[in-house]
Nucleic acid binder design. Structure first.
Lengths: 160, 160
DNA sequence: CCAGATAGATACAAGGTATAACGAAGGAGC
DNA sequence: GCTCCTTCGTTATACCTTGTATCTATCTGG
């Protein structure tokens, strides 16, 4: 890819190499992530969803009655950053917030039928996006990818 | 589904599963990237560098006299977003900007001796950060990781 | 009951990314 | 020479993401 970094149609500007950064795995991960985010944004935009709102919907659907703190921990985001997300989902009628009698500080989050319906549509769209992005890749390589990424995440969080 | 096993005596809220998101490779990439960014930030902060300024310094060092547009293309960032970066590096005396006589629109970017010195220090620190993060991982798996990430990036950029 | 911890919220700061549009300059074709 | 179009660096803007400090209400353990 370093050699194919082209400048659109420009005859004067020669291609520049980013080989000096390629040895860093973080650089490759970042570039791949940027591509995924841009593509995913196009996929979720028509449904007025973002990465974080889609992720939140998915986890709420899979873990009914969870609290915001639990959701934040599962998504590895700070609690304050979830407030606006929950507000938005609640305001759009996609989730419900029930007071929990045993702990009056927390809310129990659940999908509404509307939320479940949107989530189903979004999940299908995101799956199609991934299928295209991973088209032609070896399943064994993808398994290795997942495993190594998990190892990196663990290596980084354990030592903090 | 999720196995949110509530332990009665647990003082804190039970852990929630994110298994519903794990099938998406993008999710794993994002989580790994978050860990890397946080760790890299701690590494670069003492040198007053960010990911983007470090990357820019590296490419300028490896491709002397390149222009901002070439740098932006190589880093896959939009040209406007590079202006502040170049301004900062120039203002700190880490790079030079020479007018190019053959094209008076562009600047030729080069490292100053000070910039080269800082880059050497930073590169060493970043390499140490990566070594720790990739500690214990199989070299073949890492090679696969790089290859698959490059494939994903190509898959995503080709189809735009 | 009290001290400390936790849940949700508010405010704020800093980065990252994308787009539109501008003036200056270059290039191709006539 | 002289259009027409493109590219370069730039400004302004908007939105998203992430993190920290702080507040309150509430819970929990001693």
């Amino acid at each position: 890819m370093a050699l194919s970094t082209r400048i659109k149609g420009s005859p004067t500007a020669p291609r520049i190499s980013d080989e000096a950064l390629r040895p860093f795995v973080g650089y490759s991960i970042k570039r791949a992530m940027n591509v995924i985010r841009a593509d995913l944004r196009d996929v979720l935009d028509p449904m007025d969803l973002r990465m974080i709102t889609f992720s939140a919907l998915t986890l709420i659907g899979d873990n009914p009655a969870l609290s915001q703190a639990q959701l934040a921990a599962a998504l590895s985001v700070e609690r304050p950053n979830l407030v606006a997300v929950i507000d938005e989902l609640y305001g759009r009628g996609l989730i419900s917030r029930e007071k929990v009698p045993t702990d009056r500080r927390t809310y129990a989050l659940r999908l509404t039928t509307q939320g479940a319906r949107l989530l189903a549509r979004a999940t299908e769209a995101v799956q199609a996006h991934e299928d295209k992005l991973l088209e032609g890749l070896d399943p064994d390589d993808l398994a290795t990818l997942r495993r190594v990424l998990a190892d990196i995440e663990r290596n980084g969080t354990e030592r903090s």
